[in-house]
């Protein structure tokens, strides 16, 4: 397992009587395009919350680039190079689209607040760079002309793209996307798939994503991990996972012969 970007060993999370995640093992290699799928309530988003420090695990550990993440604040985890988006979009509604992205740069700002108040050259330089990079990122996700719009005025699909741009602004090595295609139409979904592939191919960002759109997942991801009731029930290449009887049973219940995950939406 050594050499993996993200290593998860025996990660568990218990909410009262509910075991949301039961000793999960997962490794994300550098340059991976990995997917985490499973029926609703399988523990996928909990897994993201555990990695990013939003929820404390009941057991197990997570290492990023060999460094344990246990007990770190979400902001610390982010600055180490793990960025995420949210299943239920969490933009800064009252800020503009560009400002949302600029917030993503703030965690790595070197100038202190006095230098920002006095507009010292060091801060001014960083500020200009943030603006330039912010506009570039908006262009990258296809929101280049909407920079001055209020974030809450964007269409649903655009809001998901803005969340990705904001996450990219934090300069991640690993990007965790929580249902990035939810609420998108087929055209938007196809564009999203191209975008995610570009992030990996051109920017060298590894991606772990949660998604229910099986067409999207099967075409994009190179490896999949399937969760059900907090346990891994299958893992491997999309083709293998697709025909795994345990997976089919988890999604559709027992007693079905055909492979229902072929293409189409789950």
């Amino acid at each position: 397992m050594s050499g993996a970007l993200l290593e998860i060993e025996g990660l568990s999370c218990r909410f009262g009587g509910l075991l949301a995640l039961d000793s999960l093992d997962l490794a994300v290699e550098p340059g991976a395009l990995a997917g985490l799928i499973g029926p609703n309530g399988a523990g996928k988003t909990t897994c993201f919350n555990l990695i990013t420090g939003r929820v404390r695990p009941s057991g197990g550990n997570v290492r990023f680039q060999g460094r344990p993440l246990a007990g770190l604040r979400p902001s610390r985890v982010n600055r180490l190079g793990v960025a995420r988006t949210f299943q239920n979009i969490r933009l800064f509604d009252d800020l503009t689209v560009l400002e949302n992205v600029l917030v993503g740069f703030h965690g790595r700002l070197k100038a202190n607040f006095l230098s920002a108040i006095l507009r010292l050259p060091a801060y001014a330089r960083e500020d200009r760079r943030m603006h330039d990079r912010g506009l570039e990122l908006l262009d990258l996700v296809g929101l280049g002309r909407l920079g001055q719009e209020r974030a809450s005025n964007l269409a649903y699909g655009q809001q998901r793209l803005l969340e990705i741009a904001r996450a990219l602004a934090t300069g991640p090595r690993l990007l965790l996307l929580d249902e990035p295609a939810a609420g998108m139409n087929p055209n938007e979904t196809a564009a999203l798939a191209r975008l995610v592939r570009r992030l990996r191919d051109d920017m060298g960002i590894s991606v772990l994503l949660i998604e229910h759109d099986m067409h999207f997942v099967m075409n994009l991801c190179e490896s999949l991990t399937v969760l059900d009731h907090g346990r891994v029930i299958a893992r491997g290449a999309p083709r293998e996972v697709q025909s795994d009887p345990a997976v089919i049973e988890a999604y559709l219940g027992a007693g079905l012969e055909t492979a229902p995950l072929e293409g189409g939406h789950a």
Binding site: R54, P74, S75, F92, H106, G107, R108, Y123, A169
Partner: peptide
């Protein structure tokens, strides 16, 4: 300044602000 944006981000959604490294 960038600090002001961070403060407003905390007002708008503290969880998201934390997740973005603030």
């Amino acid at each position: 300044s960038s600090y002001g944006r961070a403060l407003k981000a905390i007002r708008e959604d503290e969880t998201a602000a934390e997740a973005m490294g603030i």
